[in-house]
Design a protein around this nucleic acid. Sequence first.
DNA 1: ATAACCGTATTAAGATGCATAGTACAGATA
DNA 2: TATCTGTACTATGCATCTTAATACGGTTAT
Lengths: 124, 124
Amino acid sequence: MIVIDYKDRRPIYEQIVERFQELILKGVLEADSQLPSVRNLAMELSINPNTIQKAYSELERQGYIYSVMGKGSFIAVTDRLIKKKKEEILDAASQLVKLAKEYGVTKDEFTRVIIEGFKEEYDD
Amino acid sequence: MIVIDYKDRRPIYEQIVERFQELILKGVLEADSQLPSVRNLAMELSINPNTIQKAYSELERQGYIYSVMGKGSFIAVTDRLIKKKKEEILDAASQLVKLAKEYGVTKDEFTRVIIEGFKEEYDD
DNA sequence: ATAACCGTATTAAGATGCATAGTACAGATA
DNA sequence: TATCTGTACTATGCATCTTAATACGGTTAT
């Protein structure tokens, strides 16, 4: 479920945050289902509980999960987050077009890649 | 010409590298023209010469500039680098499409943003 | 020649962020 | 009551970034 890439220069807790965001937004983890406990996940990944704690705190701050003292951490409702994610992707696209224009990438070259990308078959 | 953003969490030398890459790729700095000296630029930006040195070393490693002992640092020929940059942008576009598909952004939504981005007037 | 400028190298110190280790407290549950 | 949960705190080690000071080799203008 969670894999740490030690070649990645980003901190471990950030990798964990991003991975859970992905699992949550894609619906792999359902709302109100329980996450692995801080200590368990730390054990499983062979890292320190404090690092997991830091990741969970960040996920809670961003609204992806909620934690209950003594009970555990749980997946939050994600409708709003999914919508936000889509907007971020479209913003990124807009930014990329801006960059493309600055460096002389033509509309044709660009749209060709887009069309091609959407044309591909689904492998999963 | 060069501005350091201390709110940016990336290291200073990296900001300098990126800024010069931009100026070089966009042709603001012409081939074989001289860059500010390590000590002068450090003075101007109120930072340590070693930090500039680190940025220049990285720029040289990447082929953006070349340095000559006792003379100075100079802009390299950039044709190859510009081509590479365009390819990177198209790769990024391809990656973004992949992401968009994963999160259910439709082809229509996506292309609308692209078209709109290319439609805009040039402000510079 | 010599002073003033260039790039380059080295060593030492401080600051910061990340991760670990250990301990402790509060609440839930079997 | 024992064991699980989240949470908090301090201390330590480590890597990276930045600064500081000094030094060396090469170029250039006076």
